[in-house]
Amino acid sequence: MAHIVDDPVLSVEHLNMRFGGLLAVDELSFDVGRRDITALIGPNGAGKTTVFNCITGFYKPTEGRITARHETGETFLLERMDDFKIPKIAKVARTFQNIRLFGGMTVLENLMVGQHNTLMVASNYTFGGIFGLSGYKKAEKEAVELAKYWMEQAGLTKRADDAAGDLPYGDQRKLEIARSMCTKPKLLCLDEPAAGLNPRESEELNKLLLFIRKERDTGVLLIEHDMNVVMGISDHIIVLDYGKKIADGTPEEIRNDPSVIAAYLGVADEEVEEVEHEIEEGAS
């Protein structure tokens, strides 16, 4: 029942992650399309964030292969790379479930840190920058332009010079996404971007994500509990339960998948038999 992806930006194959006696991720394989919004859903404790941490190098998987592919045909084996090289070289960026901004730095500064590697090269690893060579000044101007562009998209232009820690919660979420986009990623991994947002803010978030997919040619992989976001914008949904993939398909397929309904939403006692029956039918 695996969903066919023509041009995957990321392929996860036979991923296993073991913590002591606990198998948090069990033989997981899936593809993420280059211009798709792919959602990874599942009940609490299903192993979604563990998968994210494996992809972005914060955990080293026990087994399995994670491959990132660029349009140029270059491939990167993420499970073998240092965590900081994954956004730098393989161009896979991420955000965090509990927002991790540089709270004491301004919005603009946050976005400038996102462009650290580009600017580092432009400043000749500081040696050119310290003597004020013009090459660095030009690069800095371009970096500010890119930051302005993303502030505009995230609706943060007015707050450019405010401390990131001062922003309301919804703006902090958007800033974190904007900051990741400043690394010019090929794949953006978002860990529960809509958590704690009110309906209006989550609508704005949807727009931002659709914009990223459409204009920037960046694939999006997101973990989300908010079904409005998941069903509203995803092209492809993967469902996890107890570390295993239980469904993989378009939102329409997932919506009608009885095993997903059983696992994800839980089943009322009187419906158990009915659902089991449906699952059996589906399996046969």
Partner: peptide, 25 residues
């Protein structure tokens, strides 16, 4: 005002976020 200085301050603010942005801490 150079990237290295901003990286220092970013390190003070949040080391994990630094690594997620490709900074070699």
């Amino acid at each position: 005002r150079l990237p290295i200085g901003r990286a220092w301050e970013a390190l003070r603010e949040d080391e994990i976020a630094c690594r997620s942005l490709g900074l070699n801490t």
